[in-house]
Design a protein around this nucleic acid. Structure first.
Lengths: 205, 205
DNA sequence: TTCTTTCACATACGTAGTGTATGTCAATTG
DNA sequence: CAATTGACATACACTACGTATGTGAAAGAA
């Protein structure tokens, strides 16, 4: 029955390495992060890293996946809390923007991630987030609220707007001051997907 | 009269290095691009590089600036050709999206640029582009066409949408097929900044 | 012109960091 | 209890950046 001891230990080291990776990548950036330092801080050596993740990029992928998946979950929750629908979509966007205030998200997911792992749209975690947005948009479209445009394209750009707003807020000096502006502008652009003026739309449940 | 010989030669080497940098950064990516290979292909050595640009990042900055400035110019021209105003703004966005089909733009400006040089909103070239968008938006706002939202925020996100659409098109397998979808979705979102439905707006000159 | 200085660039070197090949010891299996 | 697997450490090779130093041609002085 203790035949899981090995696997559990390995899972523990994976966690340690991912945690150390988050810290190092956030603080130094991907390129400047040293795998020697990183693994040493986790009480390990590079041997563990290359055994578990293949290479530096592999660890980055694991780290990005973890953060990004948490973001998607949080955003979705924010949307469902408010009851889904159009307001839910806006809430998802707002949540996404606010999360980007965290330096880890900013540096790892928004800046280094795309450069190291390629276009975010291809990441498994981002795809999950995108599928969520697509689902919400389809539901709205079936009610006739959305303009007759390719839904996937709309979802991608909508996510992109939130991501960009987030990046702007994050890189701004007065983050707390720009946050409301960014959110307002996001909602402003988002209303572009609607068939009618937003004032005319309340709740249709 | 030949007192410019020195400076001219230096300018020539700078051009050679930037050109070689464009090729190498686009093909290999910033991290994997070797300065030895790069400079050798330009008929020079790393000495020239470090003398002219300080370090690898310095060359990257010069390359990005060159490309990005050309993009801004081209986009602005596209907007002015159509006569400015609302249609001009859309034309700028379309131009931006189409330019991102070039691998150089995609890899250097959209992917590696932000990771190496930081948030694009801080780049001098991007600021120039942003100022243009802000100017156009202000003009539209003075005609009462724009919603009462912070113009800078709007401009940033609008540029961001175009940039994101571009990135999507670029990373798509069937670029020619996704391009129209991306443009349509961009225009869709862009109408969100308008006070009224876009159908009611033609030209107001 | 000729001597001196400057400077754009090349050459040589130190260092750091990644990835791989090999070693080792505990956990598993029979 | 012997044999084997495998997770991780150690050792090594290679690459590449940045710097310190050298060099030869252009620019200025006399």
């Amino acid at each position: 029955m203790e035949s899981q001891t090995r696997a559990k230990k390995m899972e523990a080291t994976r966690k340690k390495l991912i945690a150390a990776g988050r810290k190092a990548f956030a603080k130094k950036g991907f390129a400047a992060a040293s795998m020697d330092e990183l693994t040493a801080e986790a009480g390990l050596t590079r041997g563990a890293l290359y055994h578990n993740f293949g290479d530096k990029k592999g660890l980055m992928a694991a780290v990005v996946d973890q953060i990004d998946m948490a973001m998607a979950t949080k955003a979705k929750e924010a949307g469902e809390e408010i009851g889904g629908g159009w307001e839910g979509l806006l809430a998802e966007g707002r949540a996404y923007i606010e999360m980007a205030l965290e330096p880890e998200v900013q540096r790892i997911v928004l800046l280094d991630g795309p450069a190291v792992l390629g276009d975010p749209a291809q990441w498994p975690s981002q795809n999950r987030c995108l599928q969520g947005t697509i689902g919400t948009l389809r539901a709205l479209a079936s009610e006739g609220l959305i303009k007759p445009v390719d839904i996937e394209a709309l979802a991608r750009l909508l996510n992109g707007v939130a991501l960009n707003a987030a990046l702007w807020v994050a890189s701004s000096e007065d983050a707390q001051g720009t946050l409301p502006k960014a959110i307002a502008a996001f909602e402003c652009l988002a209303t572009g997907v609607l068939n009618k003026a937003p004032q005319a739309v309340h709740e249709s449940g």
